[in-house]
Amino acid sequence: MAASAHGSVWGPLRLGIPGLCCRRPPLGLYARMRRLPGPEVSGRSVAAASGPGAWGTDHYCLELLRKRDYEGYLCSLLLPAESRSSVFALRAFNVELAQVKDSVSEKTIGLMRMQFWKKTVEDIYCDNPPHQPVAIELWKAVKRHNLTKRWLMKIVDEREKNLDDKAYRNIKELENYAENTQSSLLYLTLEILGIKDLHADHAASHIGKAQGIVTCLRATPYHGSRRKVFLPMDICMLHGVSQEDFLRRNQDKNVRDVIYDIASQAHLHLKHARSFHKTVPVKAFPAFLQTVSLEDFLKKIQRVDFDIFHPSLQQKNTLLPLYLYIQSWRKTY
């Protein structure tokens, strides 16, 4: 089996927390979720979201995140109150960019949308954001926290390059993509939290790379249903696996070995980020709550012996909000 052949990389499970039942964490995340308004986002309300009498641009960002990046939404709820709305805006910006690729039928249209967001970032730093909910909220975040323009532009530029429907040539190319998107998002989150620390940035770099790799793995069944495969070609070739094997949902050992190798790289990034947690300011830990969902996925895929098409991998963990709150309460990542 794939797991038994390579099992030495995987460390002990961390979500089991001995003695936790003896201490009762304060009510927090679930209460916040219940208090949030929840009407559906419609095209009509989106168009009017920044106008008078609408929910408001902040509510639009929150709803977009809740629907399109639920794990990011849950993590954002546990940030300090003064930072929450800015991170909602930042993550909503990322969602807007991420959904361009799947929402257009022609690359030219995707490039036009990316050009809109490039100009939007430029206009935000000229205090002239367009009348668009996410743009307005992002402008507020930039003004409030003096966010670095370079990180925002890196996210747009990398998403634009990724409009080509090509597999990553190697794991390094996937890591570079993750660094310029997910890690950049974390650098900006640290700025919102008021953290300027080399060790925190180092952790953000590795956690962002782990996030990018896990996202690529999780999306494999969806991409396969659209006749697309984006997994690193070098690892596929190493194990003699073709793109057609993934399109046919082949579950042979060599296919699972490909998934094992890729998942192991995410695991190593996560492990390395945690190896120097004592040197990272505690104030930075809330920015890294996504490690909970990353670890949850890596454990699940290990349990199914790296069968990327196993139905259990597509099921939401209903206990994730609780695990996130516990992680926040324990002040760790």
Score class of each variant (00 low, 15 high):
L147Q: 05
A92F: 02
M233L: 10
W55G: 15
Y187N: 04
W329Q: 07
Q132L: 14
L193Y: 02
A284E: 00
Y325R: 05
L217S: 01
L268V: 06
R113T: 08
W139T: 06
N254Q: 02
E244D: 06
K161D: 10
H310V: 01
S76H: 03
P80M: 03
A141C: 15
A263E: 01
L78Q: 04
D69Q: 00
Y168D: 00
H310F: 01
K154M: 07
S45C: 10
L174I: 07
Q115P: 04
A135W: 01
N180M: 14
R68T: 12
R256M: 05
L298Q: 04
D165N: 08
A200E: 02
R91H: 09
K299D: 12
H223C: 14
W329D: 02
C61T: 15
D245Y: 06
A178V: 02
L78P: 10
L65G: 04
S86D: 09
K67M: 11
K67R: 10
P80N: 10
Y125I: 03
M237D: 04
D252Y: 12
V142A: 08
Q314Y: 11
V255K: 07
E96P: 00
T279G: 12
M237I: 09
Y187L: 13
L322V: 11
T57P: 13
H206E: 05
A210H: 00
A200V: 04
L298D: 00
L298C: 05
L163K: 04
H239G: 02
G240L: 04
K278C: 12
L185Y: 03
F93R: 03
P52R: 15
S225R: 10
L322G: 04
V292I: 14
N250S: 08
Y177P: 00
A89W: 02
K154I: 04
A284Q: 00
D245N: 06
A92K: 01
W117G: 00
R226T: 14
I259A: 07
V142G: 03
L193P: 00
C236D: 02
Y323H: 14
Y333P: 01
L289W: 07
K300E: 14
S275I: 06
L193G: 02
I308Q: 02
E137N: 11
L90P: 01
L190K: 01
M153K: 14
I235L: 11
A49C: 15
V214K: 03
P221C: 13
K154F: 04
D157F: 09
K161E: 12
R227E: 08
E137L: 04
Q132V: 14
G212M: 01
L320M: 10
R248S: 06
Y73I: 03
S293I: 10
D245W: 05
W55T: 15
I301F: 02
H272F: 13
A81G: 13
Y222W: 15
V304C: 11
L247W: 04
D234S: 07
T120V: 13
Q314D: 10
R226G: 11
R256T: 07
D123F: 05
P311C: 06
V95C: 15
M233N: 05
R113C: 06
I109Y: 06
W55K: 13
G240C: 11
L294K: 02
H310M: 00
E71W: 03
F285D: 02
L270N: 00
I109G: 13
V121K: 03
D296T: 06
L97S: 08
I155F: 06
A81K: 15
V46T: 06
Q315K: 09
N176G: 14
T291W: 01
I155Q: 06
A49P: 07
L186K: 02
R274Q: 10
A47S: 15
R303F: 09
T189H: 12
L238W: 09
C126Y: 15
H267S: 09
E137Y: 03
K140M: 05
S183K: 03
Y177S: 09
D252C: 14
T220G: 05
E96A: 09
V95G: 07
S50P: 13
L152G: 00
F285R: 11
L74Q: 03
I262E: 01
I124E: 00
E106I: 09
S103I: 10
T215E: 04
T120N: 02
L247A: 10
T318M: 13
P311E: 08
H145P: 00
L319A: 10
S86A: 14
K118F: 03
T332N: 13
Y222K: 08
H131F: 15
G240D: 12
N180V: 06
D252A: 11
H223S: 12
M112S: 14
R274G: 02
I301S: 03
K149M: 11
I235K: 08
L319V: 12
L74K: 01
S76L: 06
K118I: 04
V95H: 04
L193I: 10
Y60C: 07
E295T: 08
Y222M: 10
R248T: 07
F309Y: 13
V104K: 07
V282P: 12
V121R: 04
F93H: 01
N317R: 11
R226I: 13
T189I: 15
E71R: 02
L193W: 07
R330F: 08
F276M: 12
N176Q: 15
Y333S: 00
P80C: 06
I326M: 11
Q265A: 09
V255E: 04
K118Q: 10
F246V: 12
F285I: 09
E295G: 08
K143I: 07
N162I: 04
N146L: 07
Y60F: 06
K196V: 06
C61H: 06
S205D: 03
D157A: 15
Q314M: 10
V304Y: 09
I109C: 07
T189F: 13
T57C: 13
D102V: 06
Q327W: 07
W55M: 15
M233D: 04
L289Y: 10
T57Y: 14
L174T: 00
L147Y: 02
D69C: 04
L97Y: 01
P52I: 14
L65Y: 04
E175Q: 05
V95D: 03
A203T: 12
D261P: 03
S76P: 04
E158I: 07
L163E: 05
Q115S: 12
K166A: 15
D261L: 06
R144P: 00
I195G: 03
C75Q: 11
W117D: 04
E244Q: 07
L138P: 02
L90R: 02
T120P: 02
L185S: 04
H202S: 05
T148Y: 03
F288S: 01
H145S: 08
T279R: 14
D245H: 07
I259N: 00
S183V: 06
K278G: 15
R66T: 05
K140P: 01
T220E: 04
W151I: 06
F246H: 01
H206R: 04
H206L: 05
K299H: 13
L90W: 03
Q314L: 12
V229D: 02
R248F: 04
T220C: 15
F309I: 05
G208Q: 01
D127W: 01
P281K: 02
P286Q: 08
